[in-house]
Design a protein around this nucleic acid. Structure first.
Length: 380
DNA sequence: TACGATGATTGGGG
DNA sequence: CCCCAATCATCGTA
């Protein structure tokens, strides 16, 4: 069958004739009715539009990130989201202060919005186009309003699927951006002086076995306003660094040893009385519960002149204490109570062994061990 | 700005 | 999961 201009013209003429037929409106409406009763009724029942949960998630996320939603409210929303996402950290300030981050986020946001707008526009255009088409066709075939509605909703659904992709990739971009800028490592804050003090006190007063129990860690965390894992990190770092270069930490060790001693003597009797061995006293006694029964021993004994300087500043009694301990226990012994019938957990046993082995000998030698005698770790 | 201190992460071992 | 060791990335400072 071929179509020629002539046949088209004829068809147009026929169409027009039909449209103008006096029975046409009545017949047409009957047709529409029938169609609605049969075809559409079957399908329209399943036209439910369940809000896609995934889409909702994406929307919420974008809203929370400050990408979607009101123009300038983005900042606080993003900050809040970041704070929430950064985990159960106790640290007070979690706001994003990277202007770089903000500008990148704004960029993403801009792209997102312009794309979204484009889609919206395309959707509308397409919809009106289809509507026009349908309207046009409705003159020659029965097109019920319901059918048109259905068409529109189908189109919208298609476009929202496309939008979903946009949202998804936007979310991805934000996530990547965030992980890059909000990586905790990049946002390192030094602990407060007081927190460091508390930690050091514990460390040096448990120098023979600086492995706080879970409870002790919690206690320390609470005291320092940091998380338990931060406490763990701190002790991990401290042990390693202490072991690596004991000489460097000697002064610190003495200071904290003295501190402990002072606090103990003060808490107990008068200043001048002979100090009770501050065994296991920890900082304020709150750590006794660990039951590890440590000896105090802040000083890896040794006669380095380097630390006599620190002695000068200490209270008399403490100096005596330090002095006497140094003499009485000899270098490196740590005065530890290995035979003391402590109840070490298996882990402590293992760890303690490693700690002892590694630390004890190095403290014996080395009057020469000044700060930075070894150490080649300057690569970075 | 270079450099040491320091908190966090990674990877391997148990 | 905890530990150690090495390493990263930032902070604070001379």
């Amino acid at each position: 069958m071929t179509i020629t201009d002539q046949s088209l013209d004829e068809a147009q003429a026929k169409k027009h004739a039909l449209n103008c037929h006096r029975m046409k409106p009545a017949l047409f409406s009957v047709l529409c009715e029938i169609k609605e009763k049969t075809g559409l009724s079957i399908r329209s029942s399943q036209e439910e539009e369940p809000v896609d949960p995934q889409l909702m998630r994406l929307d919420n996320m974008l809203l929370a990130e400050g990408v979607a939603g009101p123009e300038k409210g983005g900042d606080s929303a993003a900050a809040a989201a970041a704070a929430a996402a950064s985990g159960g950290g106790v640290s007070p300030d979690n706001s994003i202060e990277h202007s770089d981050y903000r500008s990148k986020l704004a960029q993403i946001r801009h792209i997102y919005h312009s794309e979204l707008e484009k889609y919206e526009q395309a959707c509308n255009e397409f919809t009106t186009h289809v509507m026009n088409l349908l309207r046009e066709q409705s003159r020659t075939r029965p097109v019920a309003p319901k059918e048109m509605e259905r068409m529109v909703s189908i189109i919208h659904r298609k476009f929202s699927a496309i939008q979903m992709q946009l949202k998804q990739s936007t979310c991805e971009a934000v996530m990547i951006l965030r992980s890059r800028f909000l990586d905790a490592r990049r946002k390192r804050r030094n602990f407060s002086k007081q927190a460091t003090e508390v930690l050091n006190e514990y460390f040096y007063s448990h120098l023979s076995n600086p492995y706080p129990s879970e409870e002790a860690k919690e206690e320390l965390a609470k005291k320092c306003g940091i998380t338990v894992s931060q406490v763990s990190n701190w002790f991990g770092n401290k042990r390693i660094r202490y072991k690596k270069n004991i000489g460097k930490f000697q002064e610190e060790a003495n200071i904290y040893a003295v501190k402990t001693a002072v606090s103990v003597t003060q808490g107990g009797h008068s200043r001048t009385s002979s100090p009770t061995p501050p065994s296991s006293a920890g900082s304020g006694g709150s750590f006794n519960l660990s039951g590890s029964g440590d000896m105090f021993l802040g000083m890896p004994g040794l006669n380095g002149d380097s630390y006599s300087a620190s002695q000068v500043r200490c209270p008399v009694s403490s100096c005596l204490l330090v002095e006497s301990l140094r003499h009485s226990m000899g270098p490196g012994s740590y005065g530890d109570n290995l035979g003391g019938g402590q109840m070490y957990s298996p882990r402590e046993m293992r760890a303690n062994g490693g700690w002892q082995e590694a630390v004890t000998p190095s403290s014996v030698t080395s009057p020469t061990e000044g700060p930075g005698s070894v150490h080649s770790d300057t690569s970075n």
